Amino acid sequence: MTNTEEAATASTGHSVLVVPVPELEAYVLERTRHYDDSFVSTDPAFVHAHITLLAPFLASPTSEDLRLVEKIATAATSFDFVLEDVRLFSGGTIYLHPEPAEPFAALTAELSAAFPQCPPYAGLFEPVPHLTVDHIAGGVSLESARTSLAAVLPARCRADRISLQWYANHGCRVIEEWPLGGTSEV
């Protein structure tokens, strides 16, 4: 069974298209363990730190769907970005805003146009490029998050691929990846 078939047959969970951010993996992995260890992946290719492009994505992408994502990734170019600006969404999610944000927004717009049946965040929220780092809960505040992030920020990062990941309790894994520009080593 291929990873795509495994994802399609899972009874719970969903797929997402993301840009992995390995530069902040240690921090995000620690916060993931803190909140829900069942989302810690055993897949060595899986990067917990990411900027979401399109979620939820298709539960059972076809080979044609995967080729379309590959075409979009290949047409894009890899790019550098910085994560330093710690912000708060109204619902209590603490996140890092990428600079520049435009390349992420452009990829989201292109993927949304290619897959209109998959509106970003199921159409509930306007997509804002971000990397989630924490939540206002259990003594965590925006200021305490800024303090804990001070050791790793600013993070100078490179967007070099789109990763199709499956998110499920005890089942987070990479389904497939495509290099941006078709030239990155993945």
Rank of each mutant, 00 (worst) to 15 (best):
T2E: 09
N3M: 14
E5Y: 06
E6Y: 10
A8L: 07
S11H: 15
T12S: 14
H14R: 12
V19A: 01
P20S: 04
V21C: 05
E23L: 04
L24K: 03
L24Q: 04
E25R: 11
V28W: 04
T32H: 12
F39Y: 15
V40S: 11
T42A: 10
T42N: 06
T42S: 09
P44N: 03
P44K: 03
P44V: 05
A45F: 09
F46S: 04
H48K: 13
I51N: 05
I51F: 12
I51C: 07
L53K: 02
A55D: 15
P56D: 03
P56A: 03
F57K: 02
L58R: 10
T62V: 00
T62M: 05
L68N: 08
L68A: 12
V69S: 10
E70C: 10
I72V: 12
I72P: 04
A73F: 00
A75M: 11
F81P: 05
V82K: 12
E84C: 07
D85A: 09
R87S: 09
L88A: 02
L88E: 01
G92R: 07
G92E: 10
G92M: 09
Y95F: 15
L96V: 14
H97E: 14
H97M: 09
A101H: 05
A101D: 08
E102A: 13
A105M: 10
E110Q: 15
F115D: 01
P116A: 01
P116N: 04
P119Q: 00
L124W: 07
V128C: 10
H130K: 02
D134H: 04
D134P: 01
I136R: 09
G138N: 11
G139K: 15
S141R: 08
L142P: 04
L142Q: 04
R146D: 06
R146K: 08
L149W: 08
L149N: 06
A150C: 10
V152P: 05
P154G: 03
A155I: 08
D160H: 02
S163L: 03
L164T: 01
N169Y: 06
N169H: 12
C172M: 01
V174Y: 05
E177W: 03
T183S: 09
